[in-house]
Design a protein around this nucleic acid. Structure first.
Lengths: 299, 299
DNA sequence: TTACGATTGGAACGAAAATTTCAGATCAAA
DNA sequence: TTTGATCTGAAATTTTCGTTCCAATCGTAA
């Protein structure tokens, strides 16, 4: 029945109950919360499909929440929606009570602080210049990270490879670097990632690259500047400190993703073509002929 | 049909048609417009009662508006509602805020929006539960990402290895997966990353792991849920959409980093010890006897 | 007034949706 | 292992919903 359990936001109630829920029920919650409240405004079977559980599991879940049935639940969602319209501002204020914030929320808040700092302290022209360098198809791009940052270097190279050719992600093992270094030309670009606890061999690499091969080094580092900065044409000193034992790499990711988008937009039609051919080949190589997994089937 | 008549707001269309409508139909319109769009989000008989007409009249009216039926009409209303809600964000996403903000700044702003969404929509208990699983030293942790997310998987495994032992980052090549799968035990944890353009082989892996080895699968995916979610004990549907050609992985990074910090804090003294030994060995292995950590400070 | 087309709603119908049942699977404790 | 409690989804069942059919009604024009 339409009891008074309705008082507080459903969202809050679901979150509260999380512990007592079964695996299936938790899946349903996740889907609901991910697109709240619209995720709940579909038929029970549609929601079941999206959550990858059965309809009965949803019925039970809804019952647990205290509703008389799925349709009762939907009526409630619509009610919330309507109410929200009346007080749009109040909602935002109520939902994020600074006090009872949990770990992830708090951590995210600090990340955001650092990202804002980054956004305001990187000169736009520098960002543009670097993107222009990377966009120039006549330049080869070499990418390398340190022990801990190489995953970001990987992220960058994986995406850039989709956008343009001649992206070289150098292996972590210094033994094979000479092969790459010897191939570098004056117009080429070397993107190096190095955060504190800097790696000496990266610095030596930067030194050689800049001096002997005269390629442009781009250094992505922190505010104390990796030694590679000495040899770099462009330096990005990004904020990495949180009040924790670990430095964050979130700003590297933000910067790298922004670069990816910027570079791909710099010559979108070329990018588009490349992605299409890339996909075509990937499809031929895959075993998709037999098993087709369903992708996101809507909006 | 879900035709293109949808282009303009339904409200406008109803107003337009007013003349050609019958008496009953006009009644329905009035009721709809009086509480738009919520008036239309009730059963056809409820709306009939409110409008003081019969259900068939409404069916006819809806048909006149160009919808395939009442439910089609409702789906449209919900769509409009969702769009409306999204538009303030969409504005933030789409429109580069007129005044002198540059690309990176704008991009960062959008990232922040998604991160805030994530922080508010992941239930704290779920996050805690997963961290507890990963913190438990008696469980082995297997980690694997898809083609594009494996760099994040790498980020996670690199850091977790510093915190605890028995972290296994599975290679991308499915040929060698069996070796890992065979080793998995019931209490072990398998963390899988899979964003849209889901990889069929990951789904198959998840299936086998959950069914045959009965390990706990943790799925990090987007709101459309990778097929691996079917077999997962915990699902994190993270926001990935920006108004660009590329999805963002920033929330994966934020989540992963938060996990790292949380897990390391769960048993800090153990973590600390491990990091120290780790560093000691790393130092012995390095060629630091000759060249100091600092790197070349000039030459 | 009658006649006729347009409009309307009651009732039956068919379709689809939600719920319940039940048997198998899973998990935890003994 | 075995046992018992819990969880899950396929199938059957029930309910609800929307549509169709058609007779009654209305409005208008002759």
């Amino acid at each position: 029945m339409t009891s008074d359990t309705r008082a507080k936001s459903l969202k809050a109630r679901i979150t509260e109950l999380m512990d007592g829920l079964t695996v299936s029920e938790r899946k349903v919650s996740s889907v609901l919360l991910a697109d709240y409240p619209y995720g709940g405004l579909v038929t029970i079977q549609e929601l079941a499909k999206r959550s990858r559980v059965s309809a009965p599991s949803i019925t039970r879940f809804i019952a647990k929440l205290g509703f008389a049935g799925y349709q009762d639940f939907q009526r409630h969602l619509i009610g919330e929606l309507k109410e929200r319209e009346l007080s749009p501002i109040e909602l935002k204020l109520t939902e994020a009570p600074a006090s009872g914030s949990h770990f992830l929320e708090d951590y995210t808040r600090r990340l955001i602080g650092q990202m804002e700092f980054m956004a305001q302290n990187i000169p736009p022209q520098q960002f543009e210049k670097v993107c222009a360098l990377v966009s120039d198809p006549s330049r080869d791009i070499y990418i390398l990270g340190g022990r801990v940052t190489d995953s970001i270097a990987l992220l960058l190279s994986i995406h850039l490879r989709q956008i343009r050719s001649r992206i070289y992600h150098m292996p972590a093992n210094p033994e094979v670097w000479p092969e790459y270094v010897l191939r570098m030309r004056k117009q080429d670009v070397v993107i190096l990632f190095d955060l504190r606890r800097y790696q000496p061999n990266l610095a030596r690499l930067a030194h050689i690259v800049a001096k002997k091969r005269q390629a442009s080094v781009i250094a992505v580092t922190d505010k104390w500047l990796s030694p590679i900065a000495t040899h770099a044409a462009h330096v990005f000193p990004l904020p990495v400190e949180l009040a924790t034992a670990w430095d964050t790499q979130i700003c590297l990711v933000a910067l790298v993703e922004a670069m990816i988008v910027r570079v791909s937009e710099a010559n979108w039609s070329a990018t588009r073509k490349r992605i299409e051919s890339w996909d075509a080949i990937r499809f031929e190589l895959s075993d998709n002929s037999q098993d087709r997994e369903e992708g996101p089937d809507e909006d």
